[in-house]
């Protein structure tokens, strides 16, 4: 890939974390390659460089397997954004984030921002089945239709009849409210004030790597949010207040400490 081959210094680091099989690699693949394909379990971590305007964003796609757990904190070191990914059809995958993955982020940058992402929304949400990326925030996503699960084809499956309502509720194991509550616990774990941080509504996403639903929104929102971090990195020696305070209202905690390394 051209952007990877040229020698470029990454400005900022984004890390994808989450249990195995939640779709981290698929999310990234959907975003970078614009398509969905069958992936195999990632070994270790994979590094990607993404051009975002004039900036280079490095993205670490990590393995969710316990085997590679020891490496997690290395991948997270100095990260400006961490995407904690779970599978909306699997409650355990959200629980794992709290049990296994949250502590890995201790090595992240002080001002690191966190996004909680529920993938595979196409399995539970008719809205997620259709679009490439409908920009709407998935507020009332409980629609009484379900898809055929896990058919690994590129085309979205047609919604089943509304009769399969019961299947639906069993299918979706993690609601957006659960994710938002988890986001609150992340802030508490990090010792951050809820007021001074980015709001949960903004940082909790439901996506579908299969249909592309919300995927661009996720990455682009995050990239926009980490830009201040990039600028601060660049100007850390100059101490000039180029940080756009409007853009990151919640960055109060970030400003508090200057970057190190």
């Amino acid at each position: 890939m051209p952007e990877a081959s040229k020698m470029k210094k990454p400005d900022v680091k984004v890390v994808l974390l989450g249990d195995m099989n939640v779709g981290k690699t698929s999310l990234l693949h959907r975003y970078t390659e614009r398509r969905f394909k069958d992936t195999i379990s990632t070994v270790g971590g994979a590094f990607f460089l993404k051009q975002w305007g004039p900036y280079n964003i490095s993205i670490w796609d990590t393995a969710g397997r316990e085997q590679f757990h020891g490496l997690g904190s290395m991948y997270c070191r100095g990260a400006s954004a961490v995407i904690l990914t779970y599978d909306v059809t699997n409650w355990q995958s959200l629980a794992e984030l709290e049990e296994r993955f949250l502590s890995l982020t201790d090595t992240a940058h002080h001002g690191c921002i966190y996004a909680v992402v529920g993938n595979k929304a196409d399995l539970t949400d008719s809205k997620a089945q259709l679009s490439q990326d409908s920009d709407g925030v998935s507020e009332d996503q409980i629609q009484e239709e379900m898809t055929k699960p896990q058919v690994l084809s590129a085309c979205p499956t047609p919604p089943a009849s509304p009769a399969s309502l019961s299947g639906m509720s069993l299918n979706k194991q993690v609601t957006r409210e659960d994710a938002m509550a988890f986001y609150g616990r992340i802030l508490r774990y990090k010792g951050l004030e809820e007021k001074g941080s980015l709001p949960a509504e903004k940082m909790c996403f439901e996506t579908s790597a299969k249909t592309g639903y919300n995927v661009d929104t996720l990455f682009e929102t995050l990239f926009d949010l980490v830009l201040p971090s990039i600028l601060r990195n660049r100007n850390e020696n100059l101490q000039s207040p180029t940080v756009d305070l409007e853009e990151c209202r919640g960055a109060g905690s970030k400003r508090a400490r200057s970057t190190c390394c």
Binding site: A4, D38, I40, T42, V43, A46, D61
Partner: peptide, 16 residues
């Protein structure tokens, strides 16, 4: 290992 990790070919892999 190379054969089994070729799924995502654009990236650079780092693994123990």
């Amino acid at each position: 290992l190379i054969g089994a990790s070729s799924a995502f070919q654009a990236g650079e892999i780092w693994t123990p």
